[in-house]
Design a protein around this nucleic acid. Structure first.
Lengths: 245, 245
DNA sequence: CGCAGCCTTGACCATTATCAACGCTGGTGG
DNA sequence: CCACCAGCGTTGATAATGGTCAAGGCTGCG
């Protein structure tokens, strides 16, 4: 958080060249419902931030002063236990929000996985704008609702699915959330390490690795590189994810 | 859902005798922030419903027409896999909402655990009232935010905690949410069966049973009956929950 | 070219699931 | 009022999934 580069110059610049990347709000689902003046006010209050790989956005326990909208790259959000066990509660990609929901302090940490960028808002400013614009509040309500749905799906995964089923579900879900994927939905980009996948799925890196090679051997996927793969048999993968194989 | 008894008479009756139990909104955290006219309008649109043990409130996949506020008793909310594996995503008690977040169809099922009661609203009505009353929308936004936080804590539990740690966390969390507990916080009421605890914690009934007897043997808890226990050593239980024992 | 970090693979182990038997308890009907 | 039965809970023996420990390979960068 300390050495994040704020890019105020980029603001006006970007609004001229590419309105859709300006304040983050223009990027995704929040965009549609909002009136131009709201977007302009959000633009005006946003700090543009560039993130190096591994850079900390927020730390568990710190005062929750800011709210972020990721504009490119990817971010890991996680909770830690005192002994270091980590549960990644989600990966964020362009268009996702961070810190919509907290009370006085963040109850999670968040770090950039790869080189990324984000818009940072002061929570007080953003709340004021929410009060002013019902359509903004409604859009964010929807956002949080969808996050809650996703969290409940993840609870089913963590509580009741086998390692294979978890991995299959993950590979099917990932491209739907990452707007940066290079091609069609059967092409999966894995910007995160095996350790991060493991901490997201409640497994170990060894198990993640073994399941991936098993999928590869059985022809369900093809590894293009360490961080990229193709789903060769989406139907079979879906069957595995739902416990029907 | 079919044979739920709607109790329209109880409405006016209850408003006279006990305003705080009337529409559900008056009961808990939502209450404080709301103006009397809003509460009155919510009262007017609420169906009072009585629930038998096991009775279905909503079924996964059905059209999400209603929104509920539990006014007494307890409810289990869960997701199923095709082969019958169940993950209980939450237990609801008096004051909790059900169905705030869904899209067109419910993506979970919900059933009463014990004899319970609830207020039922048509989602369209409730949404209209939300649009009309910013304080109501803000209060519900807070609600959903807290649910999301709880869901993320549960992800850590399911992904990274041992059976003992899960059980300890559960026993510590439960009384905080159940306003019907008979006494102080170290007195825990368990309206749910072992199977339900297991499906909430991602365990089996045998493991739940074994961990409970282990806690009992080591003097951390005392079983008062099958469905009631006392936490004898809260500090030790907290240490176990955090993985420090 | 060499090293560091990440990934893979293998052997072994432990936690928890599974299978099975038995006990308790509350409700029902004789 | 008592006895039986069904449902739930407990306990024990065994098994399996996934974790742990260890070694080795790949890759990209200096």
């Amino acid at each position: 958080m300390l050495d994040m580069k704020v890019l105020p110059d980029a603001c006006a610049e970007r609004r001229r060249t590419n309105a859709c990347d300006s304040c983050g709000a223009r990027q995704h689902s929040v965009c549609g419902a909002l009136e131009t003046p709201v977007l302009d006010r959000l633009d005006a209050m946003a700090d543009r931030i560039r993130l190096e790989p591994g850079q900390v956005l927020v730390r568990q326990g710190e005062a929750a002063d800011h709210l972020f909208n990721i504009t490119s790259g990817s971010v890991r959000v996680y909770r830690l236990m005192p002994d270091g066990r980590r549960q990644i509660t989600g990966f964020l990609f362009a268009g996702d929000f961070l810190g919509l929901t907290t009370g006085g302090t963040y109850d999670f940490s968040a770090e950039a996985i790869e080189a990324s960028s984000a818009c940072r808002f002061r929570r007080t400013d953003y709340r004021a704008e929410m009060r002013r614009s019902p359509s903004l509040e409604a859009a964010l309500f929807d956002r949080v609702s969808h996050e809650l749905e996703a969290a409940q799906a993840q609870m089913l995964l963590l509580g009741r699915k086998t390692a294979q089923e978890r991995m299959a579900s993950f590979l099917l879900d990932l491209p739907a959330h990452d707007p940066c994927r290079p091609g069609p939905a059967d092409h999966v980009r894995l910007p995160m390490t095996r350790a991060e996948i493991a901490d997201y799925l409640g497994l170990t890196i060894e198990t993640v690795s073994r399941v991936l090679t098993r999928f590869k051997t059985s022809g369900v996927i093809r590894l293009l590189s360490l961080n990229e793969l193709r789903i060769e048999q989406p139907g079979r993968l879906r069957a595995i994810a739902e416990g029907e194989a």
